[in-house]
Simulated assay, not measured.
Amino acid sequence: MTTLERQLLAAPRNFQYVSTVLIILCILFAWSLTTISIQTMDENSLKVASNIIYGLTHPDLNLLLNVSKQSVLYLLVETLCIAFLGTIVGSILAVPLAFLAASNIVPKPVAWTIRLLLIFIRTIPALVYGLMFIRVTGPGPFAGVLTIGLTSIGMLSKLYVDAIEELDVKVLESMTSIGCSTFDKIRYGIIPQLLSIFMSVMIYRFDMNMRDASVLGLVGAGGIGAPLIFAMRGYKWDQVGSILIGLVILILIIELFSTKLRSKLVKG
């Protein structure tokens, strides 16, 4: 008998706890099944389902491969630009808010006030912000950029605050003892500790913003979401398939590059 097997056999058996959890899960599963109704399904439902599957597996290649303003490629580039610009705007605005929300930088009442503001910003969904900005700027990519920028501030500021509060203050104390100015402490003591973390968080948020930007088009904030919802409403499932293929490929590419960049930043 191996050491691992002996450890497993020696581990305490909490059958009562496991049994209770399983019973609760079974009850919740059975309760969830009561909300499912298949009585509304008929022959038309099966026909619609088969048309959806056929359209998704036979995408409109002309829409996917051409380079006009109505093509998937152009709309994906527009969506990418919305996500990128929105991430840059949110990242820049999040930095001063993060410093104001860090309890080791400013007095605690100020820090908690700013944190409440950031919680409020994070609470409101991106689609609500999109509808608000569309009323102000009109439909289009600019409303999408503003929406992505504002929604990014809440998350980025929270993660920035965590990094700021974990600063090595001994470095700053030693710089103060040798007579360094505030600018020198920021330039040589704070920025080197935070830059790689901030960049890693920003890249991660850009990855999330790419998905949000593809949805914002549903409310008219630019990008590929609007053509997607129009194709679905018009039952043009071959166009839906083309758009989804383009989105999947683009997000996979961004995921690959963002993962590599974040790993290099963390190792650096």
Rank of each mutant, 00 (worst) to 15 (best):
F206P: 03
A213Y: 01
A221S: 05
D212L: 14
G223Y: 08
L216A: 03
I243Q: 01
I245K: 03
M210D: 04
F206W: 10
D207W: 07
F230D: 14
R233Q: 15
L228E: 03
A231T: 05
K236A: 14
G220H: 09
Q239V: 11
V240N: 10
P227I: 05
Q239S: 14
D238R: 13
S214D: 03
A231V: 05
L216S: 06
P227D: 01
F206S: 06
D212Q: 14
Q239N: 13
K236C: 09
G225V: 06
I245H: 10
F206L: 13
L218D: 11
L244I: 11
D207G: 10
G223N: 04
F230I: 15
M232Q: 15
A231R: 04
G225I: 00
V219T: 10
A226F: 13
I243W: 03
Y235F: 14
M210L: 15
F206Q: 02
D212E: 13
G234S: 05
G225P: 01
G222D: 03
L228H: 04
V215I: 14
R211D: 07
I229M: 12
G223F: 02
I224L: 05
S242M: 00
D238I: 05
Q239G: 07
V219I: 15
L228D: 01
N209S: 11
G246S: 09
G220W: 03
L244Q: 08
F206M: 11
S214Q: 02
D212I: 15
L244K: 08
R233V: 11
K236N: 11
Y235Q: 12
A213R: 04
P227S: 05
G217I: 02
V240D: 02
S242P: 09
L228F: 08
D207C: 08
G222S: 06
Y235G: 08
D212Y: 14
R233A: 13
P227R: 06
G234D: 11
M210A: 09
G241P: 00
M208T: 12
R233K: 15
M232Y: 07
G222R: 00
G223P: 02
R211T: 10
G217M: 01
M208I: 15
L228A: 05
R233P: 02
V240G: 09
N209K: 04
D238S: 14
M210H: 00
G234I: 07
S242T: 05
I229H: 04
A213M: 03
A226L: 15
G246Q: 02
S242V: 04
G234P: 04
I243S: 00
N209C: 07
L216T: 00
A231N: 07
S242R: 03
D207M: 11
A213V: 04
D238M: 11
I245M: 10
M210W: 06
K236F: 08
G217T: 06
G234Y: 08
G246M: 00
A226K: 14
D207T: 12
K236P: 08
L228I: 10
D238F: 07
G234M: 08
I243A: 07
D212R: 12
Y235C: 09
G225R: 00
G225M: 00
R233F: 12
